[in-house]
Each structure stands twice: as structure tokens, then as C-alpha cells.
């Protein structure tokens, strides 16, 4: 068993009388990536906000329980919250550069903690920008406003800014949801690299991202802790039916389509033959999307495909005349 970095005990949060987190107890392992998964509004972000006490910013909220980080209870009134927040870097959902230059953004953290020497600041800025792979891209324009960077660069800048205060833990709140696929990949790679030195907690609604990154998974549903455990166990062999449904459900909804065939205007059995041909050209596990308009095909094509051993993943009407059939090739 690995060491525990954050220990959450009986956490309860209520917003305006709405029970957002219900009696959560879970331990987050040190120097691993922990993914908190679950549908929107299930309390994932609230849980992050409890850890660094940004929950204080919300009106009409009550919370109870304990969150222990390095033997200190985050909720204890005697705890120095500034100190706690310094230990927990935050990477927000939307890239949020501060209204200042690139350099100032990274230097902001060290500065407010009292670092004044220009040399030390310069070194920190370069180091943190280098870790996030941004140094080469921005070293010639450190003094231009951070808002001029692309969205993807801004998010990496935010990561660098968080690292500059030397946290132990990095909290990521859906850090790639506002980014294009290439930038998202970039951020994911950074997180994987950072794992050896930092404890990372990432909230994500993207199940594929969780699978790519996570060592440990926490599944929340409507404020309840459904399941938690090492990523392999949870993804391969979920103990809870709800986890299984969530993983399958989201996997199908954002399935990658490998091939698309338009069979409109064809009647049975030709559309079935054409579909079979198209599937034949794909390798195992690939996904084919068919568009059909023959009412008979809507029932017969999936039935025939299933008889051949393929998996029909969804059949749905997309407009008045057309239907969409998604099939995954098996055998």
C-alpha cells in the first residue's frame, strides 16, 4: 500500500440546503495521479474546492468532516489556510492567466510569498516554464501580456504558475475541457511527467482521459462515493453496477467512429451486403457507423450483424427519414 497524501474523512457539504457531498471518506495516495470521475454536478469540483478551502468563497455553504493533509486538518480553524493553499496547486477548468505579463504570472506566487531577489525569480520562472515545455516558445516575449498566448499555452502557463510556489499536490479541475485535442494531449503529457514528484488529483468527465492518466480512481455519483480503488481494478472490473454503467455509457457516447458509410437509397438486402463489406475492411475492435433510410434496414441490419457476432452499440433516429447504426467489429 502506498503512502496517503490526503485523507478525507466523513466529508459533508451542503449548498443552499442541497446535499452536494454525502459522507465521503477516501484516501488519496501520494505521488500518483488520482482521477475523480462522475457525471456533471456530482460534486467532483466541490471536493477539490474543499481540499484547498476555496469552498469558503461560496455563499450559503456548510461543510463538516475532516480533510487531513500532512497531519493538518484543512477545516480546522487553527490551520493556516495560506500555508495549505501553498501546498496545493490548482489548475482550473478555463485557462485563467492573471492580468499581467507572462513573467509576472509565474513570478506572482513566489512574490506574494516574499521572494524579492530578481535572480531567484528569474531562475524560478525559467525552471517552471521549462517543466511545462513553454520556455522555448515564450523566452523572447516574457514581458508581453499573458492573454496574448494561445489557449493551450495559457493553460500550460497556469500549470507553470502553480508549480512556482513549490506545491506538493496539484489539483486539476477538468484541465483540458476548454482545450483543443493537441493542447489537451500536451497537458496530459505534462501531468504524466509530473507524477513522479507530485501528487495529482484530476477531476474529469472524460473517461478516456481518466484511463490514460489515472493510477487511482474515485467515482462519485450525485454526491455519493460509489467506488474507489486502483485504476486497473476499477476500469477492468468495477465492483459496482453504477460504475460499470457510467464507464460503458460515457464510452459509447463519445465513441470514436472509424468509418462511416451512407446507405441511403439502398433497399434490403443490398444495404446489409454493403454494410458487411464495409465491416469486412475494418480490423477487429473498429467502429462503423451506417446511415440508413429503409425502415426494414433499421431492424434487419443490426439483427444480421449481431447474428454474425458483431456488437451493435447504438441505433437511433437522426431525422425524419434517416437512422444511424453504430457497430463494433468483433471476432
Amino acid at each position: 500500500m502506498t503512502e496517503t497524501q490526503i485523507s478525507i474523512q466523513n466529508l459533508n457539504v451542503t449548498y443552499n440546503g442541497n446535499h452536494a457531498l454525502k459522507n465521503i471518506s477516501v484516501e488519496i495516495p501520494k505521488k500518483q495521479i488520482t482521477a475523480i470521475i462522475g457525471p456533471s454536478g456530482c460534486g467532483k469540483s466541490t471536493m477539490l474546492k474543499c481540499m484547498n478551502r476555496l469552498i469558503d468563497m461560496t455563499d450559503n455553504v456548510t461543510f463538516s468532516g475532516k480533510i487531513i493533509i500532512d497531519n493538518e486538518d484543512v477545516f480546522d480553524k487553527k490551520t493556516d489556510i495560506i500555508n495549505i493553499r501553498k501546498k496545493l496547486g490548482l489548475l482550473a477548468q478555463k485557462p485563467t492567466p492573471l492580468p499581467m505579463s507572462i513573467y509576472e504570472n509565474v513570478a506572482f506566487g513566489p512574490r506574494i510569498h516574499g521572494v524579492k531577489k530578481k535572480l531567484v525569480l528569474d531562475e524560478t520562472v525559467q525552471k517552471c516554464l521549462a517543466i511545462t515545455g513553454l520556455w522555448e516558445e515564450v523566452k523572447d516575449r516574457l514581458n508581453s501580456p499573458a492573454s496574448q498566448l494561445s489557449i493551450g499555452q495559457q493553460q500550460r502557463l497556469c500549470l507553470a504558475r502553480g508549480l512556482a510556489v513549490e506545491p506538493e499536490i496539484i489539483l486539476c479541475d477538468e484541465p483540458t475541457s476548454a482545450l483543443d485535442p493537441v493542447s489537451s494531449q500536451h497537458i496530459e503529457q505534462q501531468l504524466l511527467k509530473l507524477r513522479k514528484d507530485y501528487t495529482i488529483v484530476i477531476v474529469t468527465h472524460n473517461i478516456h482521459q481518466a484511463m490514460r492518466l489515472a493510477d487511482y480512481v474515485i467515482h462519485l455519483y450525485l454526491g455519493e462515493l460509489v467506488e474507489h480503488g486502483p485504476a486497473n481494478d476499477v476500469f477492468e472490473n468495477p465492483k459496482e453496477e453504477r460504475t460499470r454503467a457510467y464507464i460503458n455509457g460515457t464510452m459509447f457516447s463519445d465513441l470514436k467512429i472509424d468509418k462511416e458509410v451512407d446507405l441511403k437509397g439502398n433497399i434490403c438486402p443490398y444495404n446489409f451486403v454493403l454494410a458487411k463489406q464495409a465491416l469486412h475492411e475494418l480490423s477487429k475492435g473498429k467502429v462503423l457507423k451506417l446511415v440508413v433510410d429503409d425502415p426494414l434496414a433499421v431492424t434487419e441490419v443490426p439483427r444480421g450483424m449481431e447474428a454474425d457476432g458483431h456488437k451493435v452499440m447504438s441505433v437511433k433516429q437522426i431525422n425524419k427519414t434517416d437512422w444511424e447504426v453504430v457497430i463494433q467489429k468483433k471476432e
Binding site: 476555496l54 468563497m57 496545493l88 490548482l90 482550473a92 485563467t96 492573471l98 506566487g109 502553480g162 510556489v165
Partner: peptide, 10 residues
Amino acid sequence: ELREVSLSLG
């Protein structure tokens, strides 16, 4: 969000 960023940096 901007305030949260600053606060989260300590």
C-alpha cells in the same frame, strides 16, 4: 476564477 487562482497560490 481569477480570484480563485490568486487565492490558490496562497
